[in-house]
Structure formats: C-alpha cells, structure tokens
Design a protein around this nucleic acid. Structure first.
Lengths: 214, 214
DNA sequence: ACCTGAACACCGTTCAAGT
DNA sequence: ACCTGAACACCGTTCAAGT
C-alpha cells in the first residue's frame, strides 16, 4: 500500500457551510466557463470534498441549479431596482432604466443569465423565492408600462401585457443572441457588442413611443 | 459461453447509410425529447449499431450537431422562402411573412431551433453550408428592410442593420421564451402561446411602421 | 449531523480486432 | 471501407460505513 499524500493536512472533516459554498463555487465555475456545463463532481473537487458530499445538501443537480437561480434572480431584481432609483422619474426614462438594469446584469453575469433562463435545468414552479423575485420585476414592468400608456407615451389600445412581453422578448432576444455568440453574424464587431445591444434596446423603446408624445 | 440471442437476425453488418441515419435519428430523438440533450450512445442503440460506430462518421458529438444544424438551417431557409412567395409583394407584408416563416419553422421544430441557436454545441464557423443558408436569410432580411425604408415604411435615419437586428432579436426572444417555457409566467395560457407569439410579432412590425405610411 | 469512498449505470471517445 | 466491443476517463446518484 503506497503512502497517501495528505491533500491538505489541516482540512477539517466538516466543511462548515458546504451548502452555500457549493452555490458560490458553481456560480464561479459557470462564469469562468461562460456556460452552465459544469459537473457536480468538479464543484466538489474544487471544494475538497468527496463526490457524494453535495448530495447531502442538494438531492439532485437540478436542485443546486434552482438554488443558484434563486440567488441570481434576487440579484437581478436588486440591480433593476437600483437602476430605477437612479433614473429620471418620467415613464420612458424609467422604462429604459428597467431594461438597462436587466441587460446590465445579464451582460455582467452571462452564465447566471443562462441558468435563470434555462427552465429545463431546474423546477421553476417548485421555488417560492424564485417566483417572488421574478414576479416583482414583471409586475414593476407592467405597472410602468401601464403608467406610460395612461400618460400618453404608449399606445392605449394595446394590452399592457402585450407591450410588456414584446419589450421583454426584445431585451431577452438581444441578450441571448449576444451570449450565444450570434452577433458576429449580424455585422456587430466583438468589441462593440455590449454597447450596441444596450443602444438597440433604447432605440426600440423610443420607436414604441407614440409620435405625438415625442 | 452463453448462447447469444440474435438481436435482429437479419441485420446486415454494414448499415448502408449510417451517416444520414445518425442525423435523422438524432433529430427524431431531439424533437421527441423537446431538447438537444440526447447521447450519441442512445442514437447508436436505436439504430442497432455499436457505441463506437458513429465516430467513424462524426469524429465528435459536436460534429454530428453541426451536421444537424446544417440541414436544419437549409430547411429553415426553404420555409422562409416559401412564405415570402406566398405573401403579398408590398414590403410590410413581405417582412411579416419573413418573420412568420422563421417563427413557424421554429415552433414546428423546437429542438432543431435550439440546436441551430446553440452556437456553443458546435463550430458554426467551420461549416460552409451553414454560413451560406444563414447568410441568405439574413441578406434577404436586410434587403427587404432597406426596400421598406426607401419606400417610406420604415425610418430612414436608422441603419438597416440595426432595424434588422432589432426585429430578429424580437422574433428570437419570443421564440426562446416560448421554447424555454417562460411564457406561462407572462400571463399567456399554454393553449394560446403559439398564436400569441405570432400575433405579437406582427404587432411589433406594425409598431415600427412610420405613422404617415400607415 | 455531516462526510467518505466504493459502487452502479450511464456518458464521449479511442482503437485493436474482426468482416 | 465499415463496424464491433472492450477500454478509459469521465458523469450523477446512492448508500453503508466512518467521524
């Protein structure tokens, strides 16, 4: 029997807070790789625990993904709320700030953006806090658009929910095209992609503002 | 040595056209599962060949994905071109038809839509035919939008590429929100999602048409 | 209560050997 | 030329055994 080299002679048997450490390390690895294709075993290895240890805290890989998505959605909400506080109070500035917050967060945290978006990697319905933070952002969007409609900036004949969804889809589409590396096929040079995506979103919001209100 | 049961006593040693069969079966399994998470081994198993056989035709899983993406992109192009032929010839009808073709194809073939969009699953740049068919659709979009600008339907001050990208991002965003199962969190009941997504796209095109041209 | 480490049924990929 | 099937280094997950 060969002598075993002590990997870390002072590592304690108990990790301390393995649950949170798993979430943090998974996010770190995801952002490092740029996507969500890491293994639970790799996370365990990096934390110096055995391959089975994570499963005491998360019964499945999907439940770890859900925990990451929960934290990510909260942080997204906070970024959006900060952006709204900083912006001018007129409806269109607020709407642009909301979009900017969402996009800013996604561009800064592409892997977490992918995880939050990839509903098939975890059970969205099963998480209470996920729904709370997601709904908060969605409701803020709806209220803002409704205010903009009543103030005459946006078409009142169109349902608020339709306008909200169209704007969200545009932001989401631009972001996904960016993180999926599709923009280089659309005449956008790599260096300018981040700024361009933000500028295009402002352009779309402006295009939706009614002519007489401009 | 136990007697081996002949799995299929008449199966020939050579498959005949294993390369094409792999592509077809992978697409079948992908559409059956609704996503691109199948294994090469499963495809081989379903075709009754050994686990190593696919690797004679595709050196990596990614190269099989690329072959699927090539065929899918061609078919997408054909659907778009068919839709353009069927539509009225004015610029806005053509633009809506183009969007409708893209979305119709994606909604009918969600797994292939995901594969085509997931640039990290294969090497987009490495495939000549992928670029040809993709560029064809993109160039048609650009020319159409440019014609619509010159005809006074769309803003001439905005760069054609920007309008094209904004519209593409909206269509792509709506489609991805749909295939990723996000629409149920946006007040769209499951039964109406397909029609709603198509209707919203028309709405966005209409919203971009200049008021004096309406 | 928390973690280890072997075990199981999977992967993608390689390659000597077979037809 | 094409395919098999064992082999390798990986997975996610389980669970008896350890601390």
């Amino acid at each position: 029997m060969p002598a075993k080299q002590p990997l870390s002679q002072s590592r304690p048997y108990h990790h301390g807070n393995l649950k949170q450490a798993l979430i943090d390390m998974a996010v770190e690895v995801a952002e490092e790789k740029g996507h969500e294709e890491w293994s639970v075993r790799e996370i365990a290895r990096r934390l110096g625990v055995s391959s089975g240890a994570p499963f005491r805290h998360f019964p499945t890989r999907a439940s770890l993904m859900a925990a990451i998505a929960e934290e990510a959605t909260l942080r997204l909400r906070l970024v959006v709320e900060r952006e709204l506080r900083r912006a001018k109070t007129d409806e269109i500035s607020q709407l642009k700030a909301l979009a900017r917050g969402f996009m800013h967060w996604a561009l800064d945290n592409p892997a977490q953006f992918r995880i939050v978006s990839a509903r098939r990697l975890f059970d969205f319905e099963a998480s209470a806090s996920l729904a709370v933070h997601f709904n908060q952002v969605r409701d803020t969007t709806m209220q803002l658009i409704n205010r903009a409609q009543l103030a005459g900036f946006l078409c009142q004949q169109t349902a608020t929910a339709d306008l909200a969804l169209a704007l969200r889809a545009t932001a989401y589409g631009l972001l996904r095209m960016h993180v999926d590396g599709q923009l280089s096929q659309w005449q956008v040079s790599p260096a300018k992609q981040t700024k361009h995506v933000m500028a295009l979103m402002d352009m779309v919001v402006d295009a939706m503002v009614l002519p007489r209100a401009r």
